[in-house]
Design a protein around this nucleic acid. Structure first.
Lengths: 143, 143
DNA sequence: GGTAGACCTCAGGTGACGTTCACGTTCCGG
DNA sequence: CCGGAACGTGAACGTCACCTGAGGTCTACC
């Protein structure tokens, strides 16, 4: 039995089984079924799920993650190199996020103290910079 | 008539009137009504709405914004200094966001190339750093 | 073969932040 | 005083990423 149950994958990856089922519905992961209709996972699923979670942490939507996963070679188990390739693009994404927030901060600096908040130079009137970060710090309090 | 209709406030601030009604429901802004039950806004509402939008851009939830607004002095129209005071705290918040993403990026750097994605040093196994940024770049495509 | 615990599906809920709709009322210029 | 634009309300809808619960089934161990 080198296959894993959903509970085992959940435990090893930190993802909830409800999330695993959801991701399967979306086509992000696959499974085979036992005669009794229970899911069984290949060992490589662990890494796939880990990838999904890491990508989420970086800020990718499940849609984007699905697109990334779709570029993996079919037919063979992805190698470390495959995973590295996928995550390489994240670097630029993070850099861009940082730059975006820095810009916002600098605009804010030039704005604090005048209290203008409605002038053209404020962070306000730059709708091109949309920041919708919601990071309470511990949204999912797992383990 | 130095009061404004909801359409005028919407136009001047860039907020949709549906959002203005929603924010009023939440108690973030106030209005007086005409005899015909239509909203009329004080001029200072423009700045208040601008504050809300700026704060959202920084990443505050409407709850947090409400708490901030609640510290404004009652009875008098807020001054530029009042607004500046409120926005001063944003700076640290942005700095912290930047640091958080930088940490994530550095972890990622030490991880790319090995493709591990499931080891302890990866961005993966640091659930303390929850990043749930969703910023497609132009979520609200206004103007 | 009994049973505890893990698993199944499906429907509905959550929460943040609004938008859209249906349907009715008000405002203002001509 | 008329008509169209703007406004009002309440309810439903939408997104994203799941979670919860009900009601039933499977698996593994003793």
């Amino acid at each position: 039995m080198s296959t894993l149950t959903i509970g085992q994958v959940a435990e090893r990856t930190g993802a909830a089984s409800s999330a695993l089922r959801y991701w399967e519905d979306l086509g992000l992961i696959g499974s085979v079924r036992t005669s009794g209709n229970q899911r069984r996972y290949d060992r490589s699923t662990i890494r796939r799920v880990s990838f999904i979670r890491a990508a989420q942490r970086i800020g990718l939507s499940l849609d984007e993650i699905g697109a990334a996963l779709a570029t993996l070679p079919e037919g063979r188990t992805p190698t470390a190199g495959d995973w590295a390739r996928l995550s390489r693009g994240w670097r630029g994404r993070l850099d861009e996020q940082i730059r975006r927030i820095e810009r916002l901060r600098d605009q804010l600096d030039s704005c604090i103290g005048c209290g203008c908040l409605s002038l053209r130079t404020c962070a306000l009137n730059n709708p091109s910079d949309v920041l919708a970060d919601r990071g309470p710090g511990a949204v999912l309090l797992e383990s």
